[in-house]
Write a protein that binds this DNA or RNA. Structure first.
Length: 388
DNA sequence: CGGCCTTTGAAGCAA
DNA sequence: TTGCTTCAAAGGCCG
């Protein structure tokens, strides 16, 4: 794990929310894996690997280069790009999975996927966020991020499960906000983090371009919202979802319920506070739409594979931005839900049975670290991100 | 309809 | 302390 940093005392003095991720020491991470990849890429697979490699290069054209995506970035060798971006040796084959879903292969073969599409600076919006500008200026952003969560099926009133901080710069979909959230924060202690306070000072009138920011402000704990019975009109925080995931029952149905049932139901309906997103999740949220547009892919599994590779292709500085954002997310999450713990959601998702897990772990499938047990002799792909 | 897939990172848990 | 597991997002796929 990229357990790094800390040494610096962390940004925001005293806020060391366990943000071991501040600096990602991913130098050479997967160096050995590269070897493995090289091995596995031999023969016909090598072409595929190179194809994938070029895909990563494109992403570096965008994300990389600290905003100087040269026109020929996509044509440069990965070694060049990697060395430039990371200042580290960057072998030509990195982390190529042995297999890719067919859809991913299709995507990689797609011409639009191979052409350099990442011309804009991905982080322009990110920088916007990082500086917590007043919302009035947000609309001035020249290149609003493409819609990331515009599912047509989504009820207009619902709040997409977006990472609030991230939403601040990524989502174009307005979310109705109360005129004065602060008035509804009676029971919630005011946030004191200077960075974050800027968010909460937003008003509904300024939400045009940064709509989902509101989701932060309409956080249940802020406005006695979804988490508090008797305030049905409140807009839930994206981190909060009804644990049942089902629609609200009609009053008539409700009357049919026995007390015991309703009790159980009540229990089940207790809103689930979701984990704050980590750096990679934030990165995925931002880049997913681009990958989809570029590769005409829709399968998340395939997209995530691409994003995983692109993530590793990012420079340290670029990744650091997401780590910082994730840190702020955690910080805010902690402030909003002081008593919340990740264990609250433990076991709530019905996951594959442990049996299956064990079976897979011995059967060549990926374990929790994304590694393959049979290759366990070699360092796990991402563990070698050792401290510099 | 709901779990799986797939990714990385954070955190929980057991030993 | 170490190593493993679960969850976070996303959306197509499949039983």
């Amino acid at each position: 794990m990229p357990q790094l940093d800390s040494g610096g005392g962390g940004a925001g003095g005293g806020d060391d929310l366990g943000a071991p991720d501040e600096l990602l020491a991913f130098q050479d991470e997967g160096e050995e894996q590269d070897d493995k990849c090289r091995d596995s890429a031999a023969g016909p697979e090598r072409d595929l690997a190179e194809l994938k490699s070029s895909l990563v290069n494109e992403s570096e054209g965008v994300a990389g280069g600290s905003g100087v995506p040269g026109p020929g970035a996509g044509a440069r060798s990965e070694t060049e790009v990697g060395a430039e971006a990371l200042g580290r040796e960057h072998t030509s084959q990195r982390l190529f999975p042995d297999k890719l879903p067919e859809s991913l292969e299709d995507g990689l073969k797609a011409p639009e996927c191979a052409s350099g599409m990442y011309k804009e600076t991905v982080y322009s919006a990110f920088n916007l966020l990082m500086h917590y500008p007043p919302p009035s200026g947000a609309g001035q952003h020249p290149q609003p991020q493409p819609p990331l969560h515009n599912k047509a099926s989504q009820p207009p009133h619902s709040v997409p499960q977006l990472s609030p901080l991230y939403e601040h710069f990524s989502s174009p979909h307005p979310t109705p906000a109360p005129a004065d959230v602060s008035q509804k924060q009676g029971v919630h202690r005011p946030l004191q983090t200077p960075d974050l306070s800027g968010f909460y000072s937003l008003t509904s009138g300024s939400m045009g371009q940064l709509p989902h920011t509101v989701s932060w402000f309409t956080h249940p704990s802020l406005m006695l919202g979804s988490g508090v019975p008797g305030h049905p009109a409140a807009i839930p925080h994206p981190a909060i979802v009804p644990s049942s995931g089902k629609q609200e029952m009609q009053p008539y149905d409700r009357s049919l319920k026995t007390q015991a049932e309703s009790k159980v139901e009540k229990e089940a309906k207790k809103p689930t506070i979701k984990k704050p997103l980590n750096a990679f999740m934030l990165y995925m949220k931002e880049m997913r739409a681009k990958v989809i547009a570029e590769c005409t892919l829709k399968e998340s599994a395939a997209i995530n594979q691409i994003l995983g590779r692109r993530w590793h292709a990012l420079s340290r500085e670029e990744q650091a931005k997401y780590y910082e954002l994730a840190r702020k997310e955690r910080q805010l999450h902690m402030q909003l839900y002081p008593g919340w713990s990740a264990r609250d959601n433990y076991g709530k998702k019905k996951r594959r049975s442990r049996e299956k897990h064990q079976e897979s772990s011995t059967g060549g499938k990926r374990n929790a670290f994304g590694t393959y047990p049979e290759k366990a002799a070699a360092p796990a792909p991402f563990l070698p991100m050792t401290v510099l």
